[in-house]
Design a protein around this nucleic acid. Structure first.
Length: 807
RNA sequence: GCCGAUGUGGCGGAAUUGGUAGACGCACUGGACUCAAAAUCCAGCGGGAAACCAUGUGGGUUCGAGUCCCACCAUCGGUACCA
């Protein structure tokens, strides 16, 4: 009797989704578990085989939690604003709303065909005004608390299409679509002050259970550094230059300074500068370069001395030259540096090229280590000792830092300073398909948020989605929408025409799931209290520094204003590996190695697809797709189905399988918790092989087996449970099997015997057998091999191994 | 360049975290069933005749190393001069 997966999977999916079998319960007295996967962007290509890897993993955990008695919230939704829908609309003149709806319907069907236990009653869509009403509401709160502000920031502007471009649309300095050069264009944009939360975003990582590599990546991205600000006087002038340095200890070795081309000191002192033409030319050249070019093409250092002005090193009191160079960035620190070529590799490279003086101020503590700062910068902080540094001489780097900072503070020429690499979040997009920013500009009152009771501010339905030639959003052309009245004074005002970035909707979506249809608040207090925080969030490593950090920032803000009850949104964060094409390369249309999940489901069924996705390799590592391997998983499930032909009566595990059953429960239970799904599947396979070998499985064994396998292959196991074992309740809600530790331990052990660590023989002993008796057996077993050998030592590790050191 | 992963049969990968390397699956080989094929079932499957040799390479620690330490090589991913 063959297994008709098409019919049976459909049958169970219809039942689950019509009856809402897996919907979270509104009983707030139960213990809860909230599992979250990153909601997909509903692209026109449909679901990728990578999506189900993460979804199946958390579905397995969610299904196990239900069996463990938890009230489980495992929701799904769609992150539907974004560039591809808008670009598609521009090309084909179909409103993004229409394509988005079509794509979501397709995704929903695909997801249902794989049998995920999502709570579909809470489905959300970031483009739904009832959803983005609250995205806009959060923005207004940010504005009211001074965390949203306007600033002039450069955008990528395509000189061909006359539109602003996202970084990913700029390839090698030209527009991805038309190939025209991309220039930087200044534009006033909304910014979010994430930097205010930098320290807390680092500190609170201590309280959450994120993978270490995720924590490390977030910390590195935020990039806290400790150092000092030092003020240098400009000779014959009242002006000063302030620098940030992590190495104030090397101040005696600062032989010149470098400022960013955009630095204001150039304008301020332009009357003193004697080579203004040369400088203007360098500035011009630098401004032509995009950030991309500055870094990619500029391996060789460039620069230009600012003639006519000199700075004074505050410790040596010597005059030192000031240069401009684009390796100094206006966006980090103070936009100017003190250069210590003896102890910084970039400064060294620059000094060598332009023949600037190099002074050694640190030497290795260990005299035997050679060090020639004329050839190479000496950068070892750990073991360095100060020289040529006046009052700092003979101190270690650490001591010198402390002492010099005290000196700087006492003499008011500097202070201790903490810096972060993290920058504020540019929140404006000159795009149509995003949440309108709910602000109006009034000549009299300035920027005013629209009243909260007027939310949502709906995106107007327009016909043309191309951005304007001046780089404004398409909305700017719609005067009837733009012109409005000031909520504050009632006078004439204009709406903000930029929209929010795609990150906005995904920064708080997990909160909406807790109470998805609330029209009074983003979620009720009770629901937030009960469901917060997300217990387990799985997603891709690529979202570690943007999405994950942005949503932690928003959450912390909402915590500060009393909206949410926890400091952190996610208690646990794990990540999955990418699925590559069968040739080991990233799946892409152009490489022709894309696998369509629909084809897999219709050829092998959802259960086989799920089992294969879990079996293909370690969950957190990339794995190539293999059609042969999925056939193996499908074969395994056929063997499970056919176990019914071996079924015998029995209410207890039979003696021959008792140990195996207890071990399997233990192994599968812990493997699921540790996301070692591949070895859990191999445990199932081994067990099935054993049943076939013995040509028997009793009802008790079959029941436990089906329960363990249910989270992986929910359709087939539910069917077998109800039709073969006569189950009346859903297997999905039966209590998760338990095991007895004592029954997992073997009472006989195969003991390996080694000579010098190399296996020579094995013997069978009983568990915890007395050492004398083991020794006797060992010697009996290897008697002949011991001839002509001298025993130096014997090591017995109880129940593990017996090693004889021989000569 | 820097940071982070990873490196084990023909292939995907196991290995109780320092204790029998190669579980499980794929591919392959042989057998059974069949008129035949597919499917299914059973058996074999790192190399070597053997002693032995084998976990990217070279050292080290240890009674014992895929696992720990040092140096290097390769592949993949992230990032771009962060003072």
């Amino acid at each position: 009797m063959g297994y008709n997966f098409k019919e049976i999977e459909k049958k169970w999916q219809d039942k689950w989704y019509q009856e809402g079998t897996f919907n979270a319960k509104n009983d707030f007295t139960m213990k809860k578990w909230f599992g979250l996967i990153e909601f997909p962007y509903p692209s026109g290509q449909g679901l990728h085989v990578g999506h189900p890897r993460s979804y199946t993993a958390l579905d397995i955990i969610a299904r196990k939690r239900r069996m463990q008695g938890y009230n489980v919230l495992f929701p799904i939704g769609f992150d539907a604003f974004g560039l591809p829908a808008e670009n598609y609309a521009i090309k084909n003149h179909i409103h993004p709303k229409i394509t988005t709806e079509k794509n979501i319907n397709h995704f929903r069907e695909q997801l249902k065909s794989i049998g995920f236990s999502f709570d579909w009653s809470r489905e959300i869509n970031t483009t739904d005004p009832e959803y983005y009403k609250w995205t806009q509401w959060i923005f207004i709160q940010l504005y009211k608390h001074g965390l949203a502000y306007k600033a002039t920031m450069p955008i990528n502007f395509c000189t061909g299409c006359k539109v602003g471009l996202a970084n990913e649309e700029v390839v090698n300095g030209v527009c991805e679509r038309c190939g025209s050069p991309v220039v930087q264009k200044e534009k006033s944009q909304w910014m979010l002050r994430i930097t205010k939360y930098a320290q807390r975003l680092i500190d609170d990582l201590d309280d959450v259970d994120f993978l270490d590599k995720i924590k490390a990546q977030q910390k590195n991205w935020i990039g806290r550094s400790e150092g000092a600000e030092v003020t240098f006087k400009i000779a014959d002038s009242d002006e000063t230059l302030t620098v940030y340095t992590t190495r104030p200890d090397t101040l005696f070795g600062a032989t010149y300074m470098v400022v960013a081309p955009e630095h204001h000191i150039i304008e301020k002192l332009s009357d003193k500068i004697t080579n203004m033409d040369e400088i203007e030319e360098y500035k011009h050249q630098a401004s032509l370069k995009s950030d991309f070019e500055r870094s990619e093409l500029n391996k060789e250092k460039t620069g230009c001395e600012i003639k006519g002005i000199k700075a004074i090193n505050p410790l040596t009191n010597k005059e030192i030259p000031i240069w401009i160079s684009d390796y100094v960035l206006i966006t980090y620190g103070t936009g100017s540096i003190m250069a210590v070529p003896g102890h910084d590799t970039r400064d060294h490279e620059f000094a060598k090229k332009f023949n600037l003086p190099i002074v050694q101020v640190i030497k290795p503590a260990d005299e035997t280590i050679k060090c020639d700062v004329d050839k190479e910068a000496f950068t070892d902080v750990e073991t360095g000792v100060l020289i040529n540094s006046g009052f700092l001489n003979d101190l270690s780097v650490v001591e010198a830092k402390k002492k010099v900072i005290n000196y700087l503070e006492d003499n008011h020429i500097g202070k201790k300073q903490v810096n972060y690499k993290l920058r504020d979040w540019v929140f404006s997009r000159q795009r149509y398909w995003g949440e309108p920013i709910p602000m109006v500009y009034c000549e009299k009152c300035g920027w005013v948020p629209i009243p909260e009771e007027e939310l949502p501010l709906k995106l107007p339905e327009v016909e043309d989605y191309e951005p304007s030639e001046n780089g404004e959003s398409p909305l700017a052309r719609h005067e009837e929408w733009v012109n409005t009245i000031c909520p504050h004074c009632g006078g004439k005002a204009r709406r903000e025409t930029d929209t929010m970035p795609q990150w906005a909707g995904s920064s708080w979506y997990y909160l909406r799931y807790m109470d998805a249809h609330n029209d009074k608040a983003l979620a009720s207090k009770e629901a937030l209290e009960y469901w917060s925080p997300v217990d387990w969030y799985n997603g891709g490593m690529e979202h570690t520094t943007l999405h994950l950090l942005y949503s932690r920032f928003w959450h912390k803000f909402l915590y500060d204003i009393g909206v949410v009850p926890t400091k952190e949104p996610y208690q646990k964060r794990t990540s999955h590996g990418m699925i590559l094409g069968s040739n080991g390369e990233k799946m892409s249309k152009s490489k022709g190695n894309v696998v369509n999940p629909d084809d897999i489901v219709s050829e092998f069924g959802a259960d086989s697809f799920r089992v294969y996705e879990m079996f293909m390799g370690p969950f957190d590592q990339t794995a190539p797709w293999s059609m042969e391997s999925i056939r193996g998983c499908s074969k395994f499930l056929d063997r499970v189905w056919n176990l019914q032909s071996l079924l015998v009566d029995g209410e207890e595990y039979s003696p021959k399988f008792e140990k195996a059953m207890h071990r399997a429960i233990k192994k599968v239970s812990s493997d699921i918790e540790e996301m070692k799904f591949n070895t859990a599947v191999s445990t199932f396979m081994t067990l099935v092989n054993d049943f076939y070998k013995e040509k028997s499985i009793n009802k008790a064994e079959f029941k436990t087996f089906l329960q363990l396998l249910n989270p992986f292959a929910p359709h087939m196991t539910e069917e077998l449970w109800q039709t073969v074992l006569g189950g009346t309740e859903m297997l999905a809600y039966m209590k998760w099997p338990t095991y007895d530790e004592a029954k997992t331990i073997a009472d006989e052990i195969t003991l390996p015997i080694q000579f010098n660590g190399k296996l020579k023989a094995t013997i069978t002993i009983s568990l915890d057998e007395d050492e004398e008796s083991v020794k006797e057996k060992v010697h009996q077993a290897v008697e002949d091999k011991l001839e002509n050998k001298m025993i130096v030592k014997e090591i017995y590790v109880k129940n593990k191994i017996y090693n004889i050191v021989v000569k």
